[in-house]
Simulated scan of single mutants.
Amino acid sequence: MTADLLVPYHRHMADDRHRELAKALLTWSLQLCSCNRGSAWHAREAFYAATFERYCAPPDAAERENLLCAKYITFFFSLDDGLHNELEALADQLRSGRPVRAGELGTLHDALLADLRAHGLDTKQVEARIAELCAAAVTERARDARTMTQEQFHDLRMVTVAAKPYIDCRRAVRNLPVPNEENLVEQALEAIYIANDLASLDKETASGGAGEYETSNIVRFHAACSGRDLNAVITTVTDRYNHIAATLRNTTPGPLATILTSTVDGNLRAHVGLSTTRYPGAARLLRCLQPVVPPSRR
């Protein structure tokens, strides 16, 4: 039954490992399900999460690492695509330190942390980053682009892109210390949100809602604040992305550089891979972004 739900997505999956990961995530999600959105909704979310993990994982990632990191992505997509009242409740409970009672989103949160702990992993950093993400996501679209500075937008988007907890999950699985190269992490996060915002631009523009996405999309934010047209802003943020990619390309090799490179390049590949499903039209803008590692060197 679980495998059947994923059949519509098989043609979008890279290989058997991709399919098996999606199946494992769907099984996990359905075991924890308390919503009325239906199994097909969970199958779609499992496909999305498996796609990002399949492309973002370093080449040497083991199956255990893939599944644990992909469970975080599943939690995030439930946060991003799920009920706002559950997000508000979870953010409030995490902020106050009260036990989590936030519906299915809270159940996924606790199950993810329990799975990490079951493998003997330190979850303190992951917990703190998830709490930060939830708090920021609650307020993101309630902000006013007309009163936000560029620095405030950047700081908010660095959190709401949700990549820092993912990097910390991978760091925990690999027993890596909290990185000293915080500047590299910040550049990677910026590249990740630029790619995401370019990928979702066509979809958000087509859906209308004046001002709705101006505090969550770098192109729309800068266009609204500067009065420049979208194409001019797209060129500016594309150039910024390619500058970051060049910086990461010239970074001294090491465990953290491996994680950041695979995450930035995998994020780009995943968005392209989902350009016919979650991010319609994404390939048009993403083809101008340069990978950190050229395809010839993979």
Rank of each mutant, 00 (worst) to 15 (best):
R129M: 03
N250L: 12
H10V: 10
T51L: 05
S226T: 15
G227M: 04
P177W: 09
R44T: 04
R98G: 07
T252W: 01
P295I: 14
F47S: 08
D115F: 01
I259G: 02
A102S: 15
D265G: 01
L274Q: 08
W28V: 07
T160E: 05
D110F: 01
R297E: 14
A245W: 05
H42A: 12
V219N: 04
L260Y: 00
R278T: 01
A137F: 03
E63I: 15
P255R: 07
L79D: 02
A145C: 05
R171W: 00
L184E: 03
I244T: 09
I192M: 08
L5N: 02
E190A: 00
E204Q: 14
S78Q: 14
D15R: 09
Q31H: 09
N180Y: 11
R170Y: 00
G38V: 14
C69T: 13
T277A: 14
I244L: 03
V159S: 01
A162F: 06
T252P: 02
Y193H: 13
A135Y: 06
D81Q: 11
N267I: 01
V185C: 10
K124P: 00
P99F: 08
D110P: 08
Y279Q: 08
H10R: 13
A111R: 05
D229P: 03
R143Q: 12
R269N: 02
W41A: 04
A188H: 08
F52S: 01
G82I: 07
R101Y: 06
A118P: 03
M13F: 10
E140W: 08
S78L: 12
T215K: 07
Y241F: 15
N66K: 13
P294C: 10
H18G: 01
N267T: 12
D202T: 10
T261N: 02
R249F: 04
S226N: 12
D197T: 05
Y213L: 09
A257F: 07
R287S: 09
A57W: 00
E182C: 04
S226G: 10
Q152P: 06
T238C: 12
A43P: 02
T147P: 03
G209E: 04
R278N: 09
E65Y: 10
N85S: 11
I73M: 09
T236Q: 13
T236D: 15
I73G: 00
V100H: 06
L68F: 07
S262Q: 00
G281R: 03
N180S: 14
A282Y: 05
R240N: 12
A91Q: 04
S207L: 12
E53M: 14
A188I: 06
R19G: 09
E63K: 12
M1T: 03
M13L: 14
L286T: 12
D122G: 06
V219Y: 04
A24N: 10
G120S: 13
R11S: 13
W41S: 11
D144K: 15
A118E: 10
V159Y: 03
N175L: 10
R141K: 13
V138R: 11
W41K: 04
A283W: 02
G211V: 11
E88W: 00
A142D: 15
N217E: 15
E104A: 06
M148S: 08
I244G: 00
T263H: 05
A118K: 06
N217I: 10
P179F: 05
A114L: 14
V178K: 10
I73W: 07
L87E: 09
V237W: 08
Q125Y: 04
E151L: 14
R37I: 12
T258A: 13
V233L: 11
A49N: 06
S39C: 03
D202V: 08
A46C: 07
L30H: 02
